[in-house]
């Protein structure tokens, strides 16, 4: 267990963390502000990745592809909101779960019809390809650093947007007491629509950013969605700050647990049992973390004040 390995795994954990944050940010706002359970949020991440793959192939340049994919992801989110989700806000959570689950199934199939079942790939942009030596013996792919940097930048922007601007204030107010905001003369329907479209675009951005390192395939958002729900529950529903902290926490615990769990256990157990137990325990760690957080703080780390 060398120090270099620890640094690399920490960076890997950070990278998973900011990725989770990009998806969780939209989800926690939609859940917190509109009290709407959107299982189809992971699909928006997938759509973002597919749009980026398609536009990159068309234009031959990842950044043009990204620039085209983002407005399309936004538009797609708005269309979904307009045609489907706004009719569900008043329904109970079970109806919302059922309807959005149906959207997952439909869109996963639709993606397969349009782009085929085989995974697509997106090349890493030329200037960010390859690896850099961060310190002697520590080689790290540049693109993963770009993901970390852009994720942190967006987190900062989002934080400013929510705490310093008028629209951010309305969102926070909506998360606390939506009927009152509405009574004060704010068009809450339009606010919901903006939040929703923005969340969809962030998830789409996350999908586009990982397209060069992960394969773009139907159903790619489904596994991530579960992690994202863990993140927003740990962070406190409706809280951007909570989502950020929880996302980094989940990313680090998951990555470090997977790689160092077995070697730490080896101190207590014999090697075979340690690797067996470590293997079983590693995927559970984040859920244990969630259970622990919920035990001590049932509303999450940073609950939106009610």
């Amino acid at each position: 267990m060398s120090l270099t390995l620890l640094y690399v795994q920490t960076l890997n954990g950070l990278q998973l963390g900011v990725l989770l944050f990009l998806i969780a940010a939209g989800l926690t706002l939609v859940f917190g502000v509109m009290d709407f359970v959107n299982l189809a949020h992971g699909v928006q991440y997938m759509i973002g990745a597919y749009l980026a793959a398609m536009f990159t192939a068309l234009t031959g340049n990842f950044f043009f592809g990204l620039a085209l994919a983002l407005p399309c992801a936004l538009l797609f989110g708005l269309l979904l909101e307009f045609f489907i989700f706004r009719h569900l806000y008043a329904r109970d959570h079970l109806d919302q779960v059922l309807a959005t689950f149906g959207i997952i199934l439909t869109l996963n199939q639709a993606v397969k019809v349009i782009w085929g079942a085989a995974p697509l790939s997106v090349p890493i942009p030329e200037i960010f390809s390859g690896s850099v030596v961060l310190m002697p013996g520590l080689l790290y792919p540049v693109w993963r650093l770009v993901i970390i940097a852009s994720g942190l930048a967006i987190a900062l922007l989002l934080g400013l947007l929510v705490t310093k601007t008028r629209i951010g204030m309305l969102v926070r107010a909506g998360a606390t007491n939506a009927p009152m905001v509405s009574a004060l003369g704010v068009d809450i329907g339009r606010l919901f629509m903006i939040v929703f479209g923005f969340g969809a675009m962030l998830a789409g951005f996350a999908g586009a950013m990982v397209a060069p390192i992960l394969s773009v395939e139907p159903g790619m958002g489904d596994n991530l969605l579960i992690l994202t729900f863990v993140v927003i529950v740990i962070g406190g529903i409706g809280s951007i700050r909570g989502a950020f902290i929880a996302a980094l926490l989940v990313g680090l615990v998951d990555t470090l647990g997977r790689s160092f769990g077995p070697s730490i256990l080896r101190a207590f157990l014999d090697p075979a049992a340690a690797s067996q137990t470590g293997r079983a325990l590693a995927p559970m760690l984040i859920y244990i973390l969630m259970a622990a957080v919920l035990f001590f703080r049932p509303a999450g780390l940073f609950p939106a004040k009610k």
Binding site: S2, T4, L5, V8, Q9, N12, Q15, L16, L139, R144, I213, L214, S215, M220, N223, T255, R258, S259, S275, R279, P283
Partner: peptide, 20 residues
Amino acid sequence: EVYTPLGQLDFSAELAQIAA
């Protein structure tokens, strides 16, 4: 000898172990 969860898509942690 590393076993990953079925369906895992990011192998950064395992690749770092291989490099080490």
